[in-house]
Write a protein that binds this DNA or RNA. Structure first.
Lengths: 254, 254
DNA sequence: AAGTGGTCTAGACCACTAA
DNA sequence: TAGTGGTCTAGACCACTTT
């Protein structure tokens, strides 16, 4: 009843301990696969299994032709969703338009985003939130890629019922900057949001668009905005890579 | 300038398309690795690379001796953190003690949790939130594993400054059920919470304790509770597997 | 050109599950 | 006992980066 731990588990454990003890610090290069092969006296495939295990845990990244490295942490962007679209905060700060861009700029970083507008049938999940029939209804979709210092930080797709925003500035592909955001520019006031956050692995498409390292999970933040009559006006789905984001909320206990 | 897509990418793409088109439905067994080997005319290692790729995406699970299967989705537990520890909701529902258990029981499911209490030096992150000196301060730690229908659903670790809760029922290992939760039973009232959510891959320890399938990311929810004077009373760190949780918030746009 | 990780092969034996 | 995935070997060539 002795060892049945696979060798590549043991090798991964050994390297992980070195990282946790600080003998291998973030950014440092690991020994080459050939060196590990001779050091542990196993085949190269076994070494690669061990490295793959650590990569899955988010501890390593590898680059073809250069080597494997202890993964470095991003400085995470903290987004406070309790105030991100708050009207009073807007007024207090005299910030027009995109509250997100203001938060980033306030950090001394450079925000920018690419916007694409189209009219489409909404995904089932979105149709449900907007009380629309997903088979027939149309939505105006604003797809944005948000960058901080030229690096992609998030995907933000907004869906508006087409009937609500017909012939408004919302249809323009430009970055609409009216106080209160794009919806207010169409005369629609959100008084309440319902947010749902899920966590999953990214799709291949998201990995490409956000240039995600291996084993980087994403948070999917879905915000539905309602007017004072409880009618849903908008669904915004934000895809936030886990390695560069913190989601924040302030909650009263009353 | 022709194909340089690796074969195992192409095989993974093919299988992924079959899943997305619904030809392979959740729970269904894939062909055996040997069948895939002959079908795609590649070596078994290449087949395994392709399956590994899909496993990383969270689309497959495999079981030794049985086969590989299209991953099934859990029915996610929705936790509304805007009201999870709200005093008025407690009173309106006449729910005593653990609001979490009440939410689960209200779903017709069976909640239960294992509690372990100890006194320890807090992690640096927790010490910072509690305005404590991490080198000298002590915290009372309540570590819980939360189960729904006997399956582990979350880890919830609470940290209290030891000086605040000395000689209170909090030190008892039992599941303290006083209105307003364990803190109120010690005469401490939280009026405000600050929540931070991060997303990452689980540690080996978390994988074991929560029995996580491969490539299941977790959300780490850190809630700091403050009294009316702004003094931090507690930090609760909840580890939520992405495949069985939805985090919810209700936000006012004022 | 040399170094390094990425892809791929062909085969062997082990560990677990189900018939 | 047969079937299936898990571990492991030994070696080859390719693609990318750096010198």
């Amino acid at each position: 009843m002795a060892k049945q731990t696979p060798r590549y588990h043991a090798i991964a454990d050994d390297l992980r301990n070195q990282i946790n003890r600080g003998e291998l610090t973030p950014g440092r290069k690991l020994p080459t696969e050939e060196e590990l092969t001779t050091h542990y006296a196993v085949s190269r495939n076994t070494v690669r299994l061990a490295l793959g295990r650590l990569t899955e845990e988010g501890l390593l990244v590898s680059a073809q032709g250069r080597g494997s490295f202890v993964r470095e942490r991003y400085e995470p962007a903290v987004w406070n969703w309790s105030v991100l679209e708050s009207r009073s905060v807007h007024e207090a700060n005299h910030t027009a338009g995109d509250q997100w861009a203001s938060q980033i700029a306030g950090n001394g970083q450079t925000p920018h985003q690419e916007v694409k507008v189209s009219i489409r049938r909404p995904p089932a999940e979105v149709a449900r939130q907007l009380n629309l029939d997903s088979a027939t209804a149309l939505t105006v979709v604003r797809e944005r890629v948000r960058y901080v210092d030229r690096e992609p930080y998030a995907l933000a797709d907004s869906y508006f019922p087409e009937a609500l925003v017909r012939d408004t500035p919302l249809m323009l592909p430009e970055d609409v900057s009216a106080p209160g955001g794009v919806l207010a520019s169409a005369g629609l006031i959100q008084v309440r949001f319902s947010d749902e956050i899920t966590v999953r692995m990214p799709t291949r498409d998201e990995i490409e668009r956000l240039v995600l390292p291996a084993s980087t999970p994403v948070a999917v933040h879905m915000r539905t905005g309602y007017d004072k009559d409880g009618q849903p006006l908008r669904v915004m789905i934000t895809t936030l890579p886990g390695d560069r984001h913190v989601i924040r909320y302030d909650v009263s206990a009353d």
